[in-house]
């Protein structure tokens, strides 16, 4: 077996690390614009979908969003949009964020102008468990929020509850949780109640 001197090992590793770092940085720089476009497009598609638009043409989503929605911020500094929904009504989009099981979760909630009823929601997550918590981004789960009420009969804000077996037709404030993802579901519940509390009074 060949004998390697310490100097050789030192320079060998140094060179290798440098080469790897260089290649990775170049790849990161080269791919970044494409990733950023993906993210912007994804965001626009999702907001449009929550507002009832069939944003099948992904490439056009950013432009379409600019046409139907006007960005503003809430008094508490939260990202919001005044949006003209697909069904002809006007609505309000609010950015919501919170914690899942492994990392941040966030999303957009589309409400009617009086902020008393949800028209649609979209959720995102950074690192929830694939197949379990990650299912909060599935349309099947997101549609469970459609038509849920955010205020009681007196007009006071009532936070939505997300729990197993929730979502009965006679419960306007309850939503069925994702099975196998109790903590992520609770995260969604907390995210909605805390983020919407700032906006819906």
């Amino acid at each position: 077996m060949k004998k390697f001197s310490n100097t050789y090992i030192f320079f060998y590793l140094g060179g290798l690390v440098f080469a790897v770092a260089l290649l990775l940085s170049l790849a990161a720089l080269g791919l970044k614009p494409k990733q950023e476009v993906n993210r912007q497009r994804e965001k626009a598609v999702q907001i449009l979908k929550a507002a009832g638009y069939d944003a099948a043409d992904k490439a056009d989503a950013v432009r379409l969003l600019g046409e139907v929605a006007k960005a503003r911020t809430s008094p508490a500094g939260r990202e919001m949009y005044d949006i003209h929904c697909a069904d002809g009504s006007d609505g309000i989009v609010v950015y919501v964020d919170g914690k899942g099981l492994w990392g941040p979760i966030w999303g957009y909630v589309v409400m009617d102008e009086s902020m008393s009823e949800i028209k649609g929601v979209v959720f995102f997550h950074k690192s929830e468990t694939p197949g379990l918590g990650a299912n909060i981004v599935e349309p099947e789960f997101e549609h469970r929020f459609d038509g849920k009420k955010l205020r009681d009969a007196n007009g006071h804000f009532v936070p939505l509850r997300v729990f197993k077996g929730g979502g009965h037709a006679d419960d306007p404030h309850g939503v069925d949780a994702v099975s196998g993802a109790t903590i992520t579901s609770r995260g969604v519940e907390n995210m909605l109640s805390q983020s919407l509390k700032e906006v819906v009074q």
Partner: peptide, 24 residues
């Protein structure tokens, strides 16, 4: 690590949906 980070970046750039699903 080099190849894994490369794969991750390519997934994010070209199959964004799937890369979100696989996450960590």
């Amino acid at each position: 690590s080099f190849f894994v980070v490369m794969v991750d970046m390519f997934l994010q750039a070209y199959v964004y949906d799937v890369s979100k699903m696989l996450s960590v």
